[in-house]
Design a protein around this nucleic acid. Sequence first.
DNA 1: GAAATATAGTCAACTTGATTGACTACATTC
DNA 2: GAATGTAGTCAATCAAGTTGACTATATTTC
Lengths: 157, 157
Amino acid sequence: MNHSDFSELDLTSLLSLSFSTSINELHTRLSELGFGDIRPVHGFMFKCMTPNGATGIELAEYLGITKQAVSKMVDYLEKRGYVNKQPHPTDKRGKIIILTERGWLVVKAKENILNELEQRWIGNIGAERLQMLKEDLKRIVYETNEGNIPSMFRPVW
Amino acid sequence: MNHSDFSELDLTSLLSLSFSTSINELHTRLSELGFGDIRPVHGFMFKCMTPNGATGIELAEYLGITKQAVSKMVDYLEKRGYVNKQPHPTDKRGKIIILTERGWLVVKAKENILNELEQRWIGNIGAERLQMLKEDLKRIVYETNEGNIPSMFRPVW
DNA sequence: GAAATATAGTCAACTTGATTGACTACATTC
DNA sequence: GAATGTAGTCAATCAAGTTGACTATATTTC
């Protein structure tokens, strides 16, 4: 098999490749900024925490993993200064996990890098095509999931 | 955070979502056909083995994992009747891993399902737009990796 | 052509990121 | 107020990968 031949790639492989490509670049850049201990899954957690924090259960549902797994991740991130646990305002069982200043730095850096990536893509295929691409992907995801966002907000196998 | 709001999704999230969506559907369907023991990574292995088989090292490079990990996967797949190991024709150290008939059944089924998926997407966004989408994604992947296919042919985090 | 080095694959031990199950404390329902 | 449900934690386990050590064969170098 010839690995540098793109022509036979089906759409699913293309989606896989383009996703890997961007997530790899994102995290290489984050590493260079001193956030080498942030994994892709953390980025998705942060997204769920913005702007007002989230409970463990919310994170677990969002990521499609168990609350125990979330608990470990939160400990990991707390130890490294990215998040804090706060008591839930109304539910004494619950905790709210919020971003620290350092956590927000990652979120901002991530946004900047992704914007840059999109700009480069605009350079490759043009702004209208990029807009179309986004719309089409949204539509495909939306239709395939019958209007519901997929429960597993996280590509894993 | 409102999980059913698509509008703010950046391109990377969209790529992630659309990839998950299709890979999930693919493997749900494969499960229904009795291939529930096939994981996404196996599909990528099979692709590397077609049509004439591959050595362990080739698979390892293709997937971006160690040869030991490949060895385990091959054992797993051999035990379940999807692949066979054959002595390498010229190199007595080497083995060639080839698909069995059952392995080919999976490959065919996969192709059918992915084609069906693409047809449904054509129903959603039209054939020209799908063609453009594929071209744009190819271009993006190609440019970002400077003409080389990414070594890690496999989305993992 | 023999010695040195490199490569394909295996075996075993370990790491990591997840899981399941059992438990505590608080909330909700009846 | 009692029964049931829910948020989070602790501990044990699992699964998919890793690293390191090894054998057998190939290739290079002198």
